[in-house]
């Protein structure tokens, strides 16, 4: 019996988790669809908006800011949204459908590690995309970098947490990959609206702006906008995003099924 497998130590288990994380990262890179929408599309959208001459002009209605400036947080939120709602859930549901999750459950690794690895891979991809948007905005179109880097980072982490929770919840309630894709797409457009893709939250009519301010991306847009301008985001905005992150995360854990 001594030749047979022994209990892995905590260190060995974390080595297993790291190996899975690397594997999932490698597989993400092999999905051109995934990294196009998460990594390329937000920056491409920013460039497209910058091509409209009037968007590059200071606008008195916006307190002298340019439409282009308002779109930098929108493009950032788009990366977070697409990764959480559009890209991650179908990966996880397909793993469930193909029996990959069940196969992992027969190893010493817990299946929860797979969810964690997917969340981390997408979060890192989002961060790369955010840096790309900020750098291209700064270097290409003179958009200032966030004047409150700490506030920006806090807001960004909370938004990523909320969208990861939403993605996990979509995975939890979708019995198949087809359903996950349909649910993701039907969430995508209203949430793009609340992030300000068609009309930045800062310039929405007052009542609409207040309502949108209680959605995760509406509050996230205001928080990122404040941090860009140099103020630490308001407690209300950060609280709204954090609240969504908790509620969505708890709901996902409650309904998540591996089999």
């Amino acid at each position: 019996m001594t030749t047979h497998g022994r209990e892995p130590s905590a260190l060995e288990r974390s080595a297993g988790a790291r190996a899975l994380l690397w594997t999932e990262a490698r597989l993400f890179v092999r999905e051109p669809g995934a990294w196009f929408w998460v990594l390329v599309f937000p920056t491409a959208l920013l460039c497209a908006i910058a091509l409209v001459p009037s968007f590059r002009e200071p606008t008195p209605d916006l307190g002298g800011a340019r439409v282009l400036d308002l779109y930098v947080p929108v493009c950032v939120l788009l990366a977070v949204l697409v990764a959480g709602v559009q890209t991650m859930p179908p990966v996880l549901t397909s793993y469930r459908e193909r029996g990959i999750v069940t196969r992992l459950r027969t190893t010493p690794l817990s299946a929860g590690t797979l969810l964690l690895a997917q969340v981390l891979v997408h979060a890192v991809a989002v961060l790369v995309s955010v840096v790309l948007v900020l750098v291209v905005g700064r270097a290409g179109f003179g958009v200032p970098l966030p004047a409150s880097p700490l506030g920006y980072a806090v807001a960004l982490v909370l938004v990523v947490a909320a969208m990861s929770g939403l993605g996990a919840l979509v995975t939890a309630v979708s019995p198949t990959t087809k359903v996950a894709q349909a649910v993701g797409t039907s969430l995508l457009f209203p949430m793009m609206f609340t992030s300000g893709v068609w009309l930045p939250v800062q310039v929405m009519p007052q009542l609409l702006g207040q309502v949108v301010g209680y959605t995760p991306l509406g509050a996230g847009a205001q928080a990122l906008g404040d941090a860009m301008a140099g103020a630490f985001p308001s407690a209300l905005d950060l609280g709204v995003v954090a609240g969504w992150a908790v509620v969505l995360g708890v709901a996902a854990v409650r309904w998540f099924r591996w089999a």
């Binding site: 497998g5 022994r6 029996g99 990959i100």
Partner: peptide, 27 residues
């Protein structure tokens, strides 16, 4: 366990799958 119809990630290579599984076990 080898389960009926259990698959792997479609784009995972054979060597990568074996290396990953090796990392999951102590010995």
């Amino acid at each position: 366990v080898q389960l009926q119809e259990a698959q792997l990630q479609p784009k995972l290579r054979v060597g990568e799958a074996l290396a990953l599984w090796s990392a999951l076990y102590a010995d």
